[in-house]
Computed example of a mutant assay.
Amino acid sequence: MRKWLMLLFCCSFAVSAVSAELLADMHADMAGCESCHEDGEPSSDFAFENEQCQTCHGAMTELDGEHHAIHDGMLVCSDCHSPHEMEVGQQPGCDDCHDDGRTP
């Protein structure tokens, strides 16, 4: 029983440690700032960065969850996902933008 409790504690600690990392840091660890930014510097309109998202993760119509397909053509990745502000595993919610009763 004690071993199971220790294993459970270690797993929950590992998950919480991973989730505290910013998305930007995780991506930078994989391939540096150039994994998202051309020449490592943000573009003025984030067009390059949003293309990079789709290169690795796929187009909005290919992603899981109907919320991606519904917003295809209206929004780009960075409209909802803020890599320098969001933690790994953190998901934006409908209420982040829809606070006027349009969503349940």
Rank of each mutant, 00 (worst) to 15 (best):
C97P: 08
S44K: 12
H81G: 00
D25I: 03
L22G: 01
C36V: 05
P42W: 02
D95E: 13
P83I: 13
E87A: 09
S44A: 15
F48K: 06
D64F: 10
E49G: 03
C97E: 00
E34W: 05
D100W: 00
A17I: 04
T103C: 07
F13K: 10
T103L: 05
F13R: 13
C56G: 06
G93E: 15
L8H: 04
G32Q: 08
A24E: 11
D29L: 09
W4C: 03
S16P: 00
Q91N: 11
H98W: 04
I70R: 14
A20W: 01
V15R: 01
P92S: 13
T103E: 12
V88W: 06
D72Q: 06
E85K: 15
S44W: 06
D100E: 10
H57P: 02
H71D: 02
E38S: 09
G65C: 04
H71E: 10
H27F: 11
D96H: 11
C80G: 05
L8D: 05
L22E: 08
C94G: 09
V15G: 00
S78L: 07
E41T: 13
S16Q: 11
H27C: 13
E62H: 00
G101K: 02
Q52A: 15
L8V: 12
T55E: 12
D39F: 04
L75I: 05
C94K: 03
G93R: 14
C10V: 13
F48E: 06
I70M: 15
A31D: 12
G73V: 03
C94D: 06
L23G: 03
M1R: 12
A47I: 12
S19L: 10
D72W: 03
T61A: 15
L8G: 15
N50W: 02
M30V: 12
S12Q: 13
E51V: 01
H37R: 10
Q91G: 08
C97T: 11
H68M: 04
F13Y: 12
P83M: 14
C11V: 08
M1G: 15
M74C: 09
C53Q: 00
C94M: 10
D100Q: 04
H84M: 09
A20H: 03
D99P: 01
R2C: 05
V18W: 08
C77Y: 00
P92R: 07
C94V: 09
L22F: 07
H84D: 14
H67Y: 10
E85Q: 15
H57V: 03
E49Y: 01
G40T: 08
V88Y: 05
L8M: 15
Q54F: 05
T55F: 14
A17P: 00
D100F: 07
M86P: 01
L8E: 07
P104A: 06
E66N: 14
P83K: 08
C36D: 04
A59Y: 14
D29M: 08
F13G: 11
G32C: 06
S78M: 10
A47L: 13
D25V: 10
E85R: 14
A24D: 00
L63M: 03
I70H: 08
